[in-house]
Design a protein around this nucleic acid. Structure first.
Length: 485
RNA sequence: GGCCCCUUGGUCAAGCGGUUAAGACACCGCCCUUUCACGGCGGUAACGGGGGUUCGAGUCCCCCAGGGGUCACCA
């Protein structure tokens, strides 16, 4: 048996940013293509000239690249069934449209917007569903062409059956029936000559030899219309798989008011691509295995359509953030520096300090942050002077009667340490605590506060080593002055 | 409103006729510890409701309810 090459596609319309729902659809398609050694096609559905923008196209491409979802054919590469922007495919659509007009499966319709409005209103008044009356259906082709010559711009409608059922064989949901009686002669080409969505997808998917259409559930209801078009055109439809949608925490459709929804926003908020990908993969898909952490490469062999959930998934930023923290702590300082170097704080730090120093700091801080955006805050006291102290810390550690004595003894240690290394400092400090008959913590806390202004930092002795003898001394003395004043 | 899809803890989810109904995030407690985080251990918490089918139902069927999607010369 000849195994057909798998060809899938991601077909966003460039009217906004790359939404996480879209990103997940792209991911599912990409995984499917990679698993079956097939082709992943990227197609831009930009026939809505008013809403499509070049900026949005670029944003989507960049978003996919950032995620690492590479395509084999698309606007910029692998032109075998192109072009891959619908706006450049008008001749192709026209050819198919002509075919349908010629064999009488579609017809020109001259009904004006006003007339259509009236029909709709009448339907509403009678509480029945609106269906196009079909008043242009019997118009002869000659008559239609004559009117076109007069300068009228008709739409094209398909002749839809009014009996029977159209069955969608969905790979995720099984067979779904739609009654044809519900369909009307819907428009397949607008009066400006451009195809409508349902017609364009069919022509594109067919002419691009797409074998599996994996997309979100919002398209399930469109599928019977598309099937009708395939049939009229005499084309073999692809297999369909409709994944469910991603919902906001309040179970409504995800929108701007729910915070970040585009991959660019997640990137800007300090999320790593592998974290977003990992999270998205698990949102609406499961391998059945008891496992949460996956790299893209690990997902490829495991991915399968029947692991895709039928029910909508509410996305939970807490879990994404947890995953991000995981990937951050497993990443290295070099990468953080590169990824965060565009932040304004980081640029300043980068110009003020040697790269090596910043790398040491990031290394220390890396496993206790959850997003890249926490970096400047987490390393601030390594790069800027301490000019205020945490209020609770002050009452707890500086207000004690022996605070100055403690800090002075630490100053003494800092001055005398033979090498300024964490283990040596720790040794000396613990010994000092014993001598003073105090718990080590009683020296550690005030010291931490003096050096960082904070009550929580990474291990104090590592912090001291990186800060260096001079800075420690200076900050310790400053704290003593602060307490005494 | 018509049509379609869906319904296991707060969230993601495993389960595919017989289980003490996994696991993860979040939350709580304990341990580790110089703080925070990490890590380890433990805990709270679920089959939307009602009918069937069956010796037995979260798993199959029907009804209801709820949520979502879709009904454009948008995609």
């Amino acid at each position: 048996m000849i195994v057909e090459e798998v060809r899938v596609r991601f077909a966003p319309s460039p009217t906004g940013s790359l939404h996480i729902g879209g990103a997940r659809t792209a991911l599912f398609n990409w995984l499917f293509a990679r698993k079956y050694k097939g082709i992943f096609v990227l197609r831009l559905e930009d026939t809505d000239i008013l809403r499509s923008t070049e900026e949005s196209s670029q944003g989507i491409l960049e978003g996919l690249q950032w995620l690492g979802l590479d395509w084999d054919e698309g606007p910029d590469k692998g032109d075998v069934y192109g072009p891959y922007r619908q706006s450049e495919r008008l001749p192709i659509y026209s050819k198919y449209l002509d075919q349908l007009i010629a064999n009488g499966q579609a017809y020109y319709c001259f009904c004006s917007n006003e007339e259509l409005q009236q029909e709709k209103e009448a339907a509403r008044n009678q509480k029945r569903d609106y269906k196009y009356s079909g008043c242009c259906r019997e118009l002869s082709l000659q008559e239609a062409e004559a009117r076109i010559k007069q300068g009228l711009h008709p739409v094209i409608r398909i002749k839809a059956p009014d009996k029977g059922i159209t069955m969608v064989h969905d790979l995720i949901r099984g067979d779904v029936e739609f009654s044809n009686a519900l369909l009307d002669d819907f428009i397949i080409a607008k009066s400006d000559g451009w195809p409508t969505y349902n017609f364009a997808v069919v022509v594109d998917d067919a002419s691009m030899k797409i074998t599996h259409v994996i997309r979100a559930e919002e398209h399930l209801s469109n599928t019977p219309k598309q099937l009708l078009i395939y049939e009229a055109l005499g084309l073999e439809p692809p297999k369909f798989a409709h994944a469910s949608m991603i919902l906001a925490p309040d179970r409504s459709k995800l929108s701007k008011r729910h915070g970040a929804t585009s991959v660019q926003e997640f990137r800007d908020e300090g999320y790593l691509p592998e974290a977003l990908l990992n999270y998205l993969a698990l949102l609406g898909w499961s391998s059945g295995e008891d496992r949460d952490l996956w790299t893209l490469d690990e997902l490829i062999p495991e991915f399968s359509l029947d692991g895709i959930s039928r029910s909508p998934a509410v996305y939970d930023i807490e879990k994404l953030t947890w995953m991000n923290g995981h990937y951050i702590s497993n990443s290295n300082a070099e990468r953080f520096l590169n990824l965060s170097s565009n932040q304004s704080h980081m640029q300043k730090y980068l110009s003020d300090y040697p790269r090596e120093y910043l790398l040491q700091v990031l290394d220390l801080v890396g496993n206790r942050i959850k997003t890249l955006n926490e970096i400047p805050g987490a390393i601030q006291y390594f790069c800027e002077d301490v000019d205020s102290y945490d209020a609770k810390g002050v009452t707890k550690h500086f207000k004690k009667t022996n605070a100055v004595i403690i800090l002075n003894s630490v100053i003494d240690i800092v001055e005398k340490a033979p090498q300024f290394e964490a283990s040596i400092i720790e040794d000396l400090l613990r010994r000092q605590a014993e001598i003073m008959q105090l718990k080590a913590a009683e020296l550690i806390h005030p010291t931490r506060l003096a050096l960082s202004g904070r009550t929580n930092t990474p291990g104090l002795f590592e912090v001291m080593e990186i800060l260096g003898r001079e800075k420690c001394l200076q900050r310790l003395k400053k704290a003593v002055t602060y307490i005494e004043s």
